[in-house]
């Protein structure tokens, strides 16, 4: 699976290089958490690398989002807009859910593999546009399954209710259905250290499980602090682990030994967290004793 860069500084190593191409990502956060900024960074990164960008706005009107992006220091999006490489679409939840039900299918078959980046900000009004929970689930399933054929999709979700409690059905449904879920926890009433990013899940990929502080900086957008996870994979450490493995080769079935050898070649310290090499070896040997 090909990884693509998110456009958010500091985030890619936490996702083992970025998000998977043609996947769906949900960014969840309260008001002011930086969802829209995240979405613009994502689109902008794509434009930079030649992917078309589509920004579907269900909330603010497009003029406002464009203005905010320019204020952020991203004037160059005006050029992309002129060339239609970037398109902003204003839609209401109803418009959009009608489109999903009636026209999405045809649209996708026309534009399969267009390789675009698509942001839907926020997805919440689309969910609210239908009453029944079952219908909501069906609608979002259809949306996420289909749009990822056209490109890589990022949708934002409003976090309502109590801080950090992501159990409302308007967040639960898309959280289950998206491939990757990123939570922007923001406590507006607390000081400057109140922004924390956590990757809740990321299918088919290793990812950091820590809370990472982030800031929103003019001209850059979201910048995520990596902590220990930023370090690139250490090949030397795998060497050490390999030595441990060789020592135990005699007590392992041949094919298991081969398989582990392959695995260890790709293993990073970050993946192990605070599990030591010795411990890992012990657990493996226990399995085969």
């Amino acid at each position: 699976m090909k990884k693509i860069k998110t456009g958010v500084f500091g985030l890619n190593p936490l996702l083992d290089g970025g998000i998977n191409e043609n996947s769906t990502t949900a960014v969840i956060g309260g008001s002011g958490a930086g969802k829209t900024t995240f979405a613009i960074q994502f689109i902008r990164k794509g434009l930079e690398s030649g992917q078309e960008g589509i920004f579907v706005s269900l909330d603010e009107n497009k003029e406002q989002i464009i203005r905010e992006a320019v204020e952020m220091g991203w004037e160059e999006i005006m050029e992309y807009l002129k060339d239609d490489l970037l398109v902003f679409i204003d839609a209401s939840g109803k418009d959009f859910s009608n489109f999903i039900r009636k026209e999405l299918h045809t649209f996708v078959s026309d534009w399969k593999k267009a390789g675009a980046r698509i942001a839907i900000d926020p997805l919440t009004p689309v969910i609210w546009s239908v009453q029944d929970n079952y219908e909501q689930r069906e609608l979002i399933t259809m949306l996420l399954k289909q749009t990822r054929k056209v490109g890589t999709v990022l949708c934002t979700l409003e976090e309502h209710g109590t801080e950090g409690n992501l159990s409302g059905h308007e967040t639960i449904i898309p959280m289950y259905l998206a491939d990757c879920v990123i939570h922007l926890r923001y406590k507006a009433m607390e000081g400057s250290n109140s922004r924390m990013l956590k990757i809740v899940k990321c299918r088919n990929s290793w990812h950091s499980e820590e809370f990472h502080p982030y800031r929103i900086i003019s001209g850059l957008g979201l910048v995520v602090k990596q902590g220990d996870f930023g370090k690139t994979r250490k090949k030397e450490s795998a060497q050490e682990l390999m030595k441990e493995l060789e020592k135990n080769a005699g007590n392992l079935p041949k094919n298991a030994f081969q398989k582990l050898k392959e695995t260890f070649k790709e293993l990073s310290d970050a993946e192990l967290g605070n599990i030591t090499y010795a411990e890992l070896m012990r657990y493996i040997m226990e399995e085969y004793s």
Binding site: V56, I89, D90, K113
Partner: peptide
């Protein structure tokens, strides 16, 4: 790769209006 997926989507969503 054919260009213009964005404009096409815009037309599809806002077609009724």
């Amino acid at each position: 790769m054919p260009r213009g997926v964005g404009k096409a989507l815009e037309r599809a969503i806002t077609t009724k209006e």
